[in-house]
């Protein structure tokens, strides 16, 4: 197992920080300078990358979610209700959204106890669909099936939502990167590989489950909360859309599950593929069809994703360089 490779080599932090800095500058500059199309693209890129990072964090601890729309939807509803009921503007409303996402995720971690693998996955799926039914059935709170518009007077400029989304994605990517250098990451990985064994090593699985899921839930809720301010309209089918769940899992799987770069590469690649399909076929139905095909192809032929495949292709080259270095030292 060269498992310690997955977080990248330790020397790469300054370079990585430089990359995050550049990405942050781009996140602010592109929407500011660009057309509405660029704003829209930045918003979607940021959202998809955040979802992918959020999903991958949970997956790192062995928690495979099939219901990430839960947190997205809760974040959307929290942000919208804070705006409509209490007149909170865009940025402050994101905080309660994240708090709600984190709280429900932590609750999920506690109540699912030691459910793992498929059982946890099915529980998340049931939770998101259950919340959708609840949202339909509580029209006084959520507007029911007819949906709700967000208070138009409070709505920020689309440009601002795009900047916040893209910056958020960069921040969460950085957070995931920094986390990967802490014992937290190794504890999660140990849990993923064998929870019993990790317990022997003195790891309290429940504590890590709660932390990692709360973090994952907060990130997805952030994405959902920002998106509702951009979109302006919310109904249960938009909030707890299966599409979001699929988007969240497809990035890491296409890019490379359990890696740092994988979710980002995969998320952006998914967006690119979605845009290309829309250009060629023009219809919404095709994008889900393509997502399904991506899932099938990645799992069958590229189980380590784009990132893993690239690493494998580059491996002979890096190895040769290392060998040359040793030869030089030896001589």
């Amino acid at each position: 197992m060269n498992a310690n490779r997955e977080s990248g080599s330790p020397t790469s932090l300054p370079i990585a920080l430089l990359c995050y800095g550049a990405a942050a500058v781009a996140a602010v500059a592109l929407p500011l300078a660009g057309s509405p199309l660029a704003v829209n693209l930045m918003l979607r890129a940021g959202s998809i990358v955040m979802l992918a990072i959020s999903w991958n964090l949970a997956a790192n601890a062995g928690l495979i979610s099939l219901g990430h729309s839960t947190f997205w939807g809760l974040g959307s509803y929290a942000a919208l209700l804070m705006g409509n009921r209490f007149g909170w503007p865009f940025l402050p409303s994101i905080l309660p959204a994240m708090a709600l996402g984190a709280a429900v995720a932590a609750l999920l971690a506690v109540i699912t106890g030691r459910l793992r693998g498929i059982y946890f996955a099915i529980a998340t799926l049931a939770l998101s669909e259950g919340l959708r039914v609840i949202a339909v059935m509580l029209p006084d709170l959520t507007g029911g099936g007819a949906g709700l518009f967000i208070d138009q007077t409070l709505r920020p400029e689309p440009r601002l939502t795009a900047i916040v989304t893209a910056l958020g994605a960069v921040c969460f990517a950085l957070l995931a990167h920094l986390l990967s250098r802490t014992p937290f990451h190794y504890a999660c990985r140990a849990m993923r590989n064998n929870e019993h064994a990790s317990q022997m090593l003195g790891i309290n699985p429940l504590r890590f489950r709660i932390t990692v899921l709360a973090l994952s839930g907060a990130i997805a809720a952030f994405a959902g909360g920002v998106n509702i301010w951009y979109g302006g309209f919310l109904d249960p089918d938009i909030g707890f859309d299966l599409h979001i769940t699929i988007l969240a899992q497809i990035g890491p799987i296409l890019g490379g599950i359990h890696t740092l770069a994988g979710p980002i590469i995969g998320g952006l690649a998914t967006l690119l593929i979605a845009e290309l399909t829309r250009m060629w076929f023009g219809e919404q139905g095709y994008s889900l069809l393509v997502y399904g095909a991506i899932l099938i192809v990645s799992i069958m032929y590229m189980p380590n994703g784009i990132y893993g495949t690239l690493r494998r292709l580059c491996a002979p080259w890096t190895k040769r360089r290392a060998a040359a270095k040793t030869a030089l030292v030896a001589s």
Binding site: Q249, G285, Y286, L288, L289, G292, L295, I299
Partner: peptide, 22 residues
């Protein structure tokens, strides 16, 4: 791992469903 099988079948389901819709 079980999760790969689930995600694969999830993908198969998506393809069938949306192919039917088209």
């Amino acid at each position: 791992p079980a999760i790969n099988q689930i995600l694969l079948l999830f993908g198969v389901g998506l393809v069938i469903q949306n192919l039917a819709a088209i």
